[in-house]
Design a protein around this nucleic acid. Structure first.
Lengths: 237, 237
DNA sequence: ACTCAAATTTGATCTGAGTCAATTGGCTTT
DNA sequence: AAAGCCAATTGACTCAGATCAAATTTGAGT
């Protein structure tokens, strides 16, 4: 991994112009609390490909994604990789019971996170059940998504996997940036393959097949969803 | 075995002799709180094969498993099934954001649960951050397990899946009942297949292969783990 | 624009796990 | 103890997706 510089901005009142202010973990705080809270976090930038934290690392911080996309993954000893999710703005990372991260996370393209040191964050949460409740909600939401993904990995065909992925990814971007049939795919084919439990070749062939059938058009850095209805049908089985 | 449908015992002071008293969700409560808490729950029995709740059902209750084993699963419209987990005593079920269960749960063999109506439970939790923290811990633990299972489903071979399952299941039983190389498997081969993303035939063949190689012995209602070290090696890859 | 390396696509072939089809074994009922 | 039933095993064959092997496209650096 390239040892590029991590830029740390000075602490200060930056929640005001934070993209995920009303969402994410912060949505549970009122104006006064937010003022106190912002002193705990620091904005940190990561360049494309940089690792934010690695599996088995001692957890020293929690992270709130502000901008960009991250891949979250686990490796087997022989190098096989399973991507367990992609993190987008509003996602909160780093919670665990063991005191060590249970997956690795790195930046796909430039990423900005709001980083919280573990101890002060833990103290802040102590007497704020609202915040705890919000974190719990995020965990429960993730758990539900994880179970959906288990169904995909265990029981769906390659075609279904790819169609489901494209629709699900589009849905997340819609929630973030509004409706569009142009779906940017910042992650590589290898990332998609490792997310879907396929090989890169199968993903590529399936994209080509979907394009041949007029369901999508493969464009630079993403796809255009030409026939959402047909994609839904393929995904549903 | 109990003859019929669902037996509901009268409310009362039964936490005293509860098998999961110090564990589960209750471990976060002191003696006084536990006394209040026990009025919220009722013990309910389910016979083998009975469904405790179904996916898409409105969530009216939460459940704390006291005795027995449950299968937790999701179905695709064409009948394909993915088991997302097996619940054992101490597991807490029913948390979700949508107000509907996001998987189905049924009894494998006789099961006893401690059932809590949603509303009173929600009220009780309101001013008990301890309990909320405990529930959050359980969710985070489940999330970590779910991610491990994604790796298994997406990236492991049939042999690795089966070996990993046997070791993981044994581990859970050890935590519950103490060490033993005899591993009861109350679930059917079909359940195991649907948990591992395989077919019943592949699970059966893999069991036979492990037995031929002296790793396990297939016994009535389970297996005997003859060579744990070799099983670990197969699971690790 | 030119070079080189990496990512992606495409083609040919292989194989692990699925499918289809009997058989076997264990229980329960009569 | 025979019959019936369901779960599990075993065997023969198939196939979806993996693997191996080139092209081809893209992109960063000069």
């Amino acid at each position: 991994m390239k040892p590029s510089v991590v830029t740390i901005e000075p602490n200060g009142h930056f929640c005001d112009d934070c993209a995920v202010r009303g969402a994410a973990v912060c949505s549970s705080l009122d104006a006064a609390e937010l003022r106190e809270f912002e002193h705990l976090g620091r904005r940190v930038h990561f360049d494309s490909g940089e690792t934010v934290f690695s599996e088995e690392d001692i957890t020293t911080s929690f992270y709130n994604v502000l901008e960009g996309v991250m891949r979250l993954y686990k490796l087997l000893s022989d190098g096989r990789r399973q991507i367990v999710g992609f993190a987008l703005p509003g996602d909160f990372l780093g919670m665990n019971l063991s005191g060590r991260h249970n997956f690795s996370a790195d930046a796909i393209g430039a990423v900005t996170v709001c980083q919280f040191a573990k101890a002060p964050f833990g103290r802040f949460i102590e007497d704020r059940p609202q915040l705890l409740r919000r974190i719990n909600e995020l965990a429960i939401r993730e758990l539900s998504q994880a179970r959906d993904h288990m169904v995909l990995l265990g029981r769906r065909s390659a075609d279904e996997k790819v169609a489901t992925f494209l629709l699900g990814w589009r849905e997340r971007l819609v929630a973030l940036k509004g409706l569009s049939d142009t779906v940017p795919l910042p992650m590589s084919r290898q990332d998609i393959a490792d997310y879907l439990g396929l090989t890169i070749e199968t993903v590529s062939r399936t994209f080509t097949k979907l394009e041949r059938h007029g369901v999508i058009e493969i464009i630079h850095g993403g796809i255009s969803l030409l026939d959402p209805a047909r994609a839904e049908a393929l995904a549903a089985a």
